[in-house]
């Protein structure tokens, strides 16, 4: 029996779909016993969504009423729904939009950006924006998540293989630090540093004072960024033992006894510590509650 797979994109960048293609020649092997029944970048199927889908991979967060309807429609047809990538699983970078009012953001983009000659906000047959950026599990039941912005191709291939074999896939329960080759120091850093400063080779970036999200982030990418001496930005979301990526890192920062980065007040937890998870953070949950007053 062939397995019927569908993919779908919401508010995202298509990067997760490209990561799927990055499984390379492996993809052709994977798709041998599979029927791709709905996937706008690859096959020509139009709406409505075909029935009896076995696995649906959904990229992107829920930003418009159209996204919401499509997610629900897909859930109806699919037996196993996967939130594919950080946007879908945790809200993604789009979640940073929850730090301001959606309407204000829209007006900003259509009225205040530099080149706008004729100021109007589109309204005919285009989807309506929701007040909040939501992750997929806020609107439908999600059976599994594949984290990462985008997910690592090897991990995608491995998860799909496991699913096709009828087993339940599993994510790593470790943190990025467990995969990172850099050497940790016992001394806390003397000062906090920004990433335009040049780090020393071979030494843990957090020990050097860079805000590396490694300790709070789920392993699985092989510490791609820290291998290049760039701090992990936390794209794979919280690891198993971390209840909220942003706050846990904030806490770690407090433990380092350093308040401020030279020149730059750490006023935006969202952009630095919860870049991919703000829309699903405890703080944003509280805020959403407050907004409903």
């Amino acid at each position: 029996m062939t397995v019927r797979i569908a993919t779908m994109g919401m508010a995202g960048c298509s990067g997760c779909h490209i990561a799927l293609l990055d499984t390379g020649v492996e993809l052709l092997n994977l798709l041998k016993d599979v029927e791709l029944v709905y996937s706008y970048p690859i096959v020509d199927a139009k709406n409505p969504i075909p029935p009896n889908i076995d696995v649906a991979l959904i990229e992107g967060s829920i930003r418009t009423n159209h996204d919401k309807e499509m997610a629900k429609a897909m859930r109806k047809q699919a037996k196993f729904v996967i939130a594919f990538g950080a946007c879908s699983a945790h809200g993604g970078v789009n979640g940073l939009a929850n730090t301001f009012d959606a309407q204000e953001g829209v007006e900003y983009v259509y009225h205040k950006t530099l080149l706008m000659a004729q100021k109007q906000v589109p309204s005919e047959h285009v989807p309506q924006i929701l007040p909040e950026n939501l992750r997929l599990s806020d609107v439908v039941k999600v059976d599994f998540i594949i984290p990462g912005c985008p997910p690592h191709p090897d991990e995608i291939a491995q998860i799909i293989t496991t699913l096709l074999a009828g087993e339940t896939p599993k994510l790593s329960s470790k943190s990025i630090c467990d995969e990172c080759p850099l050497e940790r120091l016992t001394e806390p850093p003397k000062q906090l540093r920004r990433i335009h400063e040049i780090p020393e080779q071979g030494i843990c970036l957090l020990s050097q004072g860079f805000l590396c999200m490694g300790p709070a982030t789920r392993a699985g990418c092989g510490a791609e960024c820290t291998r290049r001496l760039m701090p992990c930005t936390g794209c794979r979301g919280p690891s198993e033992t971390v209840w909220d990526q942003g706050i846990v890192m904030l806490d770690a920062l407090a433990a380092m006894e350093k308040d401020e980065i030279t020149n730059f007040k750490l006023s935006r937890l969202a952009g630095t510590f919860a870049r991919y998870t703000y829309a699903s953070s405890k703080l944003d949950n509280l805020r959403k509650g407050l907004k409903k007053k």
């Binding site: 508010a11 996204d67 301001f100 983009v109 989807p127």
Partner: peptide, 11 residues
């Protein structure tokens, strides 16, 4: 074009 807005310029 009905892509969902993500408001990058603002955030």
């Amino acid at each position: 074009i009905i892509e969902s807005p993500r408001l990058f310029e603002r955030f």
